[in-house]
Design a protein around this nucleic acid. Structure first.
Length: 277
DNA sequence: CCGACAACCTGTGAGC
DNA sequence: TGCTCACAGGTTGTCG
């Protein structure tokens, strides 16, 4: 479900509801996520106060002070099918509702994740030092990321540029949809060996990655299948996709038929006329 | 260090 | 209608 814009939309929706709130309790119904939900997490969270809700790549970080004054972070990742949203207390959990945070303004933050590729962990101390976070690449929407950074990071990479921009160690949070979209907008063939993408084209690609992610956030994310944001409202950026899911349709720019191929078992959609090596 | 590939898991839709 | 198969927004680990 979620790439960076959907995670950021979730963060923006939940932050005003959870920041400075006390957690009354936490409920774990299924510990079998990408990593097991740690034993004792419920005790850690009961009575904790949430200072802030932030994001690193596609990870959500609830900075907490536990009831015993210990500083820690509730780390949540939504995987492929996860969704985190607010429900009223009393709404019964459904089949794939694996985790609840009961907050003291009378509502519940609920994680639903059918495929269970998501993650719920408790990190002590500095969360950014944790192995899951300390090697993530620059945030694409901050000044840490630009064409120069992308150019430098790709010089040793012979793999296809699409795979390299989807590598979270190169740049954080670019998933399959927005990789396809950014490459189309930058006019780059997704199969181009990354090291052969010129500096000028790295500038264009970095610019388009930032632009498409920003536009998607402004649209409230993309709603595929049943995805809706934390407020229950669907985002609508999926209506703005130019190549993703459009194989067989004419290119919006040149009317050439959009093609689809597989890269690393993931669908790549591109315009053979507008996108060149 | 790099790249290719499998693995984790469930739901859905297409095709027969 | 019901079955089987391919595929879906992500990330990590292993192996060569």
């Amino acid at each position: 479900m979620p790439e960076l814009p959907e995670v950021e939309t979730t963060r923006r929706g939940l932050a005003p509801l959870v920041e400075r709130q006390r957690i009354l309790s936490a409920v774990v119904r299924h510990r079998g996520l990408r990593q097991p939900v740690p034993r004792g997490l419920e005790q850690r969270l009961a009575g904790a106060r949430v200072h802030a809700l932030s994001r690193r790549g596609k990870y959500l970080l609830f900075s907490c002070e536990a009831a015993n004054q210990e500083q820690g972070t509730l780390l949540v990742h939504l995987g492929m099918s996860g969704r985190l949203w607010l429900v009223d207390t009393g709404i019964p959990p459904e089949k794939h509702d694996h985790f609840d945070l009961v907050i003291d303004n009378g509502r519940v933050i609920r994680l639903r994740d059918p495929r269970r590729f998501g993650l719920v962990l408790w990190l002590k101390g500095d969360p950014l030092a944790h192995p899951l976070l300390n090697r993530i690449g620059p945030e694409p929407l901050t000044e840490d990321f630009d064409g120069a950074v992308l150019h430098r990071a790709t010089r040793s990479r012979s793999a296809a540029i699409k795979l390299v921009i989807m590598d979270g160690h190169v740049v954080a949070g670019v998933g399959n949809i927005y990789a396809n979209e950014a490459l189309f907008r930058a006019g780059i063939d997704p199969r181009t060996p990354a090291k052969r993408v010129s500096r000028a084209r790295c500038d264009a690609l970095a610019r388009e990655i930032r632009a498409v992610l920003g536009e998607a956030i402004n649209a409230g994310g993309s709603s595929l299948r049943d995805y809706v944001g934390s407020d229950g409202m669907a985002g609508n950026f999926q209506n703005n996709f130019l190549v993703y899911g459009r194989a067989g349709e004419p290119c919006t720019r040149c009317r050439t038929v959009i093609r689809e191929l597989k890269q690393a078992q993931r669908a790549t959609c591109y315009c053979p006329h507008c996108q060149r090596r």
